Amino acid sequence: MNCYRKFAHIYDDLINKDIDYHTWSLKILNLCRTFNVNFQNYLDLACGTGNMTEKIAPYFQNSWAVDLSSEMLCKADEKLRNKRLKTNLICEDISNLKLNRQFDLVTCCLDSTNYLLKEESLRNYFKGVFNHLNPSGIFVFDINSYYKITNILGDNIYTYDDEEITYIWENYLEDEIVDMYLTFFIKHQDMYKRFDEHHRERAYRCHTIEQILKSCGLNILGKLDNYQNKNITDISERIVYIVKKYK
């Protein structure tokens, strides 16, 4: 699957128009204070270009960030260096974590969990988090809801156009997996360059997520609607989980 390669170079231009990382990070930091988390070691999983890492790392003494895309990590490295943030960047699959240390806060934001298409991969991911989470630490992650993937993303076409970037986003839903085919046209001098991306996400029902979390020794402290203090509904699009190890 061709995923997050050339896209890394325009990712921030697109995502920052839709995602309020500032508000999300403030909520996560407040959760840390609510649950008496030590601001010592922080791990950001599927960090992408480091947008969440950049916001949260300054509050911790040490920080690590993991992503499977070396191209995204290069962008993250540039961004974090410009902010003079010393962060350990690691190219690794989040369903096969082997960092040999534990963390007080682990995050995995922007529906990266949905990219794990098999329950076995999801289970390995949660087991990895369990192994890397301090007993008093918390794990905060979000998913695109079953409703969003099956009713909003699935079998729909979206387009975007401005003076610099144009894209066509075509989705096909089958067996709870949405295949997303994106065609980009990027302006370069007096011409446009084309590249294509293919992304896949699985729609997980909450009871599946929660059953696997419990089987991996992780206790759900709370659930939020899109990083806000709102209860989850049948039409919530982004569901945020706050979990920690069972005592």
Rank of each mutant, 00 (worst) to 15 (best):
Q40T: 02
C108N: 14
K193E: 15
H22V: 11
S25T: 09
F39E: 10
P135R: 07
W64P: 05
K27W: 01
Y4C: 09
K79G: 06
Y246W: 13
S215T: 04
R84N: 15
T87C: 12
M180N: 02
L14P: 03
L224S: 07
D155F: 02
F35Y: 15
G50N: 09
K83Q: 12
S121K: 05
Y167H: 06
N2Q: 02
Y115H: 14
N2G: 01
K17Q: 15
G50D: 08
M191H: 13
V240Q: 12
T23R: 13
E237I: 05
V106G: 09
E174P: 04
N36P: 03
K6W: 05
L45P: 11
K187M: 06
F141Y: 10
M72H: 06
R101Q: 15
I152C: 08
K244V: 10
F141P: 14
K223N: 12
G128H: 00
C74D: 11
D162F: 08
Y158L: 11
D196Q: 07
T159A: 09
T34F: 03
E120F: 03
H207N: 02
V178A: 11
H9F: 14
K148W: 01
H199L: 10
H207G: 01
S136M: 07
I138H: 04
K244L: 06
F130S: 03
V106K: 05
N51M: 06
L45Q: 01
D179L: 04
D196W: 09
R200W: 03
N30I: 00
R205S: 05
L73K: 15
T34P: 05
F126V: 04
K79R: 14
L173H: 04
V140W: 06
L224Q: 12
F141V: 10
N30R: 11
Y158A: 14
D190P: 02
L133Q: 04
F139N: 12
L80Y: 00
P135Y: 08
N51Q: 05
K214F: 13
M52W: 03
I168K: 09
N41C: 11
A203N: 02
I90F: 08
R33V: 08
H22M: 07
D13L: 11
Y172E: 13
I165V: 12
L182T: 11
Y246H: 15
Y227E: 10
L99Y: 06
I186K: 09
C91G: 01
D67H: 05
N16C: 11
I152P: 02
D18M: 05
D20T: 14
N16H: 12
E163K: 06
D179S: 13
R81P: 03
S136K: 10
K118I: 00
D175V: 04
L153Q: 07
Y181I: 10
R194Q: 15
R123W: 00
E197T: 05
Y21P: 01
W24F: 07
K230L: 04
L29D: 07
M180Q: 11
I177Y: 01
I242M: 10
L73T: 13
F141R: 05
L182G: 06
I28G: 10
L224A: 02
Y146I: 14
F195L: 01
S63Q: 07
L73G: 05
I165P: 03
L153F: 13
I28K: 13
Y241S: 11
H198L: 14
I19G: 02
V240A: 07
N30P: 03
N2E: 02
F103G: 09
F126W: 07
H132R: 00
E174I: 08
N38C: 07
